[in-house]
């Protein structure tokens, strides 16, 4: 693996820092959800699983939509 030869521009560094902030905020928010559900709403294991499923669903849906958008490209190449 070769290292990056040219330094990246400041705009990219700002993007990387914003990415770090956004990912941190995402994880803090997602971490609080099941604890709030258990401590405040008194939900059980099954309902916590359902909550996690709801919070994971966008990743699956977006991945499926990206695959669907990519399919004609691969069909054309095959």
């Amino acid at each position: 693996m070769s290292a990056v030869a040219t330094p990246l521009p400041p705009t990219f560094n700002r993007l990387a820092w914003s990415n770090l902030a956004a990912q941190s905020a995402e994880q803090i928010a997602l971490a609080a959800a099941p604890i709030v559900a258990v401590l405040m709403l008194g939900v059980g294991e099954g309902q916590t699983g359902l909550l996690q499923t709801a919070l994971t669903l966008p990743f699956i849906l977006f991945a499926m939509s990206r695959r669907a958008a990519r399919r004609p490209y691969f069909t054309a190449r095959a």
Binding site: A16, Q23, E26, I28, A32, V36
Partner: peptide, 28 residues
């Protein structure tokens, strides 16, 4: 960045829980 975020998320959530924030801290 993501790994640091994953690691700091529960730690910050733990701190938030100590502050009486009803927690934060998992999923990571």
């Amino acid at each position: 960045p993501r790994t640091v975020a994953f690691a700091s998320g529960p730690a910050l959530g733990r701190r938030a829980g100590r502050m009486g924030w009803r927690g934060a801290g998992v999923w990571v």
